[in-house]
Design a protein around this nucleic acid. Sequence first.
DNA 1: GTCTATACGCCGATAGAC
DNA 2: GTCTATCGGCGTATAGAC
Lengths: 198, 198
Amino acid sequence: MVTVAAQIESKQDVRDEILQAALKLFTAKGYFNTSIADICHQAEVSTGTVYYYFKNKEGIAEALLGDVVHSLTASIAEITAKSHSAFERLRAILELFFTLTQDAPEVMRFIVYLRHHEFLPNCPSFGLSEPFQQLTQIMREGIRAGEIRRMDPAIASACFYGALVQIVQLRLDGVLEKSPDRYLFDTWTAIWRALAPA
Amino acid sequence: MVTVAAQIESKQDVRDEILQAALKLFTAKGYFNTSIADICHQAEVSTGTVYYYFKNKEGIAEALLGDVVHSLTASIAEITAKSHSAFERLRAILELFFTLTQDAPEVMRFIVYLRHHEFLPNCPSFGLSEPFQQLTQIMREGIRAGEIRRMDPAIASACFYGALVQIVQLRLDGVLEKSPDRYLFDTWTAIWRALAPA
DNA sequence: GTCTATACGCCGATAGAC
DNA sequence: GTCTATCGGCGTATAGAC
């Protein structure tokens, strides 16, 4: 799979090769500017092989999104389990995003750039996706514990996530030139002050 | 003009009719899922007419983006001229976005949803666009005046704009059900606390 | 200026050999 | 499982009448 999962079967190699190629091209040129032929060339396989592993082009994007969302959900769940305050959890999520921006920029691009519903009509809007729901749950618990100011938890999530994503985008666009963790302090300070009680 | 435009004249400009149709369809279905035929149907004109006014499909998107960016730039410039503190300016920009979300949701969708560089290869990344530069300038002046904490102005802009856009998106997606100004207080409080000195 | 008709390339998808 | 060859359709763009 894209981030960690399936080295189980050696045959999965080819499928994975195709997914990697698609990820690279989708994030570089966009879904609609990427043809099956492009993917074939990048993955060094033929059209037939692509259609052996995937029902159609949409199926490739679906698998990609599934992998990415699944992996992100798992990471956030792990963070939630390990730490027990909103402060620690949010801080860890911030670091996760910054790390991913460095180590897996294509995955990050896929998360923050692509308008998934444009080519995946049935995928939920981001606000209803699992990662955003997890985040909102963290906010809800933080508010109940008095760690976070009383406010609409969705607004808290949006402020946190929106700021984070925007900074990641600036970095991916090359506008922020220093490595992301050079900005970690400023970012975290701003975000936490937005949420913390007076 | 795309945003407020000329309901005044009974004979609405044809070119404008086409732009309105394109705006509606691009924001509803995406650029690549919208065909010239779709635009013709929506605008009630023929293919020939479209190509009389625009060089090609990209030209339509270009004109649209130009209008929107120009209008946004003008609004921010006006806000900057009228008020003289970062506090007032940012507050006014926040209100501008919330108002636009209510009154011109399609324009707002065009701003926050569309990945413009996917179909307009030569358009600058958002971080280099004029509105973002204006915002960063406001931050810079605010920091110099001691109104905003010392931090990278780009980070300040990203926090402000990212949070704002994310909330607008949630609203446009129907996740935030109340009218946006029901969220104005929470949003402004969070954003300003992120920026204000201790 | 606005229309209709049409050319034509590209790309997603399939068939079928090996 | 992987390949090559090919088809059909869609959608951009043009030609040219009015």
